[in-house]
Design a binder for these strands. Structure first.
Length: 654
DNA sequence: AGCTACGCATTTTTT
DNA sequence: ATGCGTAGCT
């Protein structure tokens, strides 16, 4: 059953709608019910219904939930912002300046391109700063011509970057949104077509939209009535990526007759957890007043513990979870450990492995981060997009075929002179005049293989198998692995990739270029192997819930993170965002929240001495009435139990 | 000359 | 456990 504001949000179809929903108040549910409602009253055809999320995970989850309720749900367009951008760019190649088969580059590749555009000898951190600058300009929706900067050189590099990306027929993640926006702005007829195509637009996690995404939304709906945005300003944690929680306010200014509905009843957490989280986030200024409440009872107090070292923190938590699962009927999946940065997971993993506690890490290293997968992706990209120099550079000598840096430099020079891509240059008939004939033969062998395969028009899975066979890739991987385990793991990686591709091909498209684009936007393969205790960053935890949550490393310098304030142009805003991160973490817990901090922690790289760190200021913002203090009788009792359990275990396996 | 292999510093959050 | 710089090696 929906509560009355939820039901009102679902039924409100005649005006633009903003749903301000607190954590755990059922905002995703509103989106799903609203889609079902729209379909049931036949307000539009399913392919005209668009739901936009930020992560693939959220999109998948939504797709799954709606497929249980509607027969033709797969025709509804549920996608991420980036996937929508891709869809627009792909269907409008006539106007975008891109050619079919264009590549999506990852940030590593885009960094290398910037490196090439910048004067030689520029320090690495300046390059990443420039990359960040370009990204921010795109996130703001600024074209090079629209920028007034104190450093005109940066703007020139931005311009050159866009030109080079176009030359190699590639886009980066930010381009998917920015180029889509510019395309619609420049072509009113295309814009009109898309506005017609989208009968109703629903946006999840609206507070995470950046200026560019906001403008895109405005373009797609023409400030029309058929938009529903769902968001929570207290959960805006992507400011560093250009997200503007101000977009919540802009909506009222730009969309006529905006209706605002608040969802304030929380169905997730106990009153204790909710009140404590609210008390923390109330230290931030609030343009929109919300008062979240719950009728789930007060429940347990929040446990706050301090430890001498990160190792001890990990050991104690592992022991406690072990104890709960063995003696208190708790499931491993009831628990989540949340932390500020990925590296904090390392010690927890060690402690968990020692005790054979099952766990999974989400968000960390993904399938697509493995060099082998990047190699194969680059091969596939090059087949579809012969202008993709980034892909070319990755695979020209992988596996090693005796083509080294100097040869590559030479190919690059010739390419520049003739305004060709690297692969096109390799296909030139006079190549053997330009290079050492022996090396030219090797280069030619490579380019022939690529060209033949790309012309073959074979189905994706066959192409991949051919590629693996002709490059002898698996053999090379096994040869380069230095131990047996690595050999097995890497081979499995490849076979998993092949399986993965077969699965996608069987399900939908066999077009190689579609396949590659889908894969490029896939960051982690969060397949249903989500067993055991969940380990993830606070960012990755948004939208999820767990019976018991451990927030670890809640110290000054970690949460709030020192870098976030040092590097921000507005430290106050950065601090507020860190506080919201704390709020998001706390509100993930349904019944029990544990918070811990460490007294001494290894600091940065130089000299590895441990430095004393204090508990986070956010801990002090939790009213004492909700806290079960570390030296309370219950706490002491628990420590005794844990210690006994640990000793028993150590005695069992000496 | 040009390529391969061994070694040294690196992590805030993500599509 | 990756990416870049400097040696040996063919």
């Amino acid at each position: 059953m929906l509560n009355s504001p939820q039901a009102e949000a679902v039924r409100s179809l005649d005006n633009p709608l903003l749903v301000l929903a607190g954590a755990g108040c059922g905002k995703t549910r509103v989106i799903i019910e609203k889609m079902i409602h729209i379909m049931q009253i036949k307000f539009c055809r399913p392919e005209q219904l668009y739901a936009i999320t930020f992560t693939n995970k959220a999109a998948k989850e939504m797709q799954k939930r709606i497929s249980k309720r509607l027969p033709n749900s797969e025709q509804i367009c549920i996608s991420t912002f980036h996937a929508l951008g891709l869809q627009i760019l792909k269907s409008e190649t006539k106007h975008s300046g891109l050619r079919p088969g264009f590549s999506i580059l990852d940030p590593g590749e885009s960094s290398k391109i910037i490196q090439e555009l910048v004067p030689r000898g520029i320090k690495k951190h300046l390059i990443s700063e420039l990359q960040w600058q370009i990204s921010s300009w795109k996130n703001a929706g600024f074209r090079p011509s629209e920028i007034s900067t104190t450093v005109p050189l940066n703007r020139d590099i931005y311009r050159q970057y866009l030109a080079y990306m176009n030359h190699i027929n590639a886009v980066d993640f930010d381009d998917l949104i920015a180029l889509s926006l510019w395309l619609l702005q420049d072509n009113p007829d295309v814009k009109a077509r898309w506005q017609k195509k989208i009968a109703y637009l629903l946006v999840d996690e609206y507070q995470d939209t950046n200026a560019c995404q906001y403008q895109l939304l405005k373009c797609l709906t023409d400030c029309g009535s058929h938009i529903t945005c769902v968001g929570d300003d207290d959960q805006s944690i992507y400011g560093w990526r250009g997200a503007q929680p101000e977009n919540l306010g802009l909506l009222a200014a730009d969309f006529k007759n905006l209706q605002v509905i608040k969802l304030e009843q929380n169905y997730r957490s106990t009153e204790t957890i909710l009140k404590a989280a609210n008390a923390v986030v109330q230290h931030n200024p609030h343009p929109f007043e919300k008062s979240i409440w719950s009728d789930l009872g007060s429940g347990e107090l929040i446990a706050i513990s301090s430890y001498d070292s990160i190792e001890e923190e990990a050991e104690q938590i592992a022991t406690a979870i072990d104890f709960s699962t063995q003696h208190k009927h708790a499931q491993h999946t009831d628990f989540a450990l949340l932390y500020r940065s990925n590296q904090q997971a390392k010690f927890i993993e060690q402690a968990f492995r020692k005790r054979n506690i099952p766990y999974h890490i989400s968000g960390g290293r993904s399938f697509f981060d493995y060099a082998e997968i990047k190699d194969l992706m680059a091969y596939l990209r090059l087949l579809v997009n012969p202008r993709d120099n980034s892909a070319f550079l990755r695979v020209i000598n992988t596996p090693k075929r005796g083509i080294g840096m100097h040869t590559i430099k030479r190919i690059s020079q010739i390419s520049k002179l003739r305004n060709l891509s690297f692969l096109q240059t390799c296909n030139q008939s006079d190549l053997s005049n330009q290079l050492d004939p022996k090396i030219a033969a090797k280069v030619r062998h490579f380019s022939d293989m690529i060209t033949t395969l790309s012309r073959s028009r074979l189905p994706a899975e066959t192409v991949l198998n051919q590629l693996l066979a002709q490059t002898d890739y698996i053999n090379w991987i096994q040869h380069s692995a230095n131990n047996q385990l690595a050999k097995i793991n890497k081979t499995k990686l490849i076979t998993d990739f092949v399986k993965w591709i077969n699965a996608i091909c069987n399900k939908q498209t066999t077009q190689l270029d579609d396949l590659i684009n889908i894969l490029s936007l896939q960051t982690n393969h969060d397949e249903e192997q989500q067993q055991g205790v969940a380990l993830m960053t606070l960012h990755a935890a948004k939208g999820l819930e767990f019976k018991q949550v451990y927030l670890i490393g809640v110290e000054e310098g970690i949460l709030p993170h020192s870098n976030s304030m040092d590097e921000a142009d507005d430290p106050q805003q950065a601090l507020e965002e860190e506080r919201r991160l704390m709020y998001v973490g706390m509100t993930r817990a349904k019944s029990k929240l544990h918070i811990s901090y460490v007294k001494k922690r290894k600091r940065k790289h130089p000299g590895q001495e441990k430095i004393a760190t204090g508990p986070s200021r956010f801990i002090k913002e939790i009213p004492a009435e909700f806290i079960q203090t570390a030296n309370s009788p219950e706490r002491k009792q628990k420590i005794k139990q844990n210690f006994a359990a640990l000793r028993a275990q150590l005695n069992q396996n000496p």
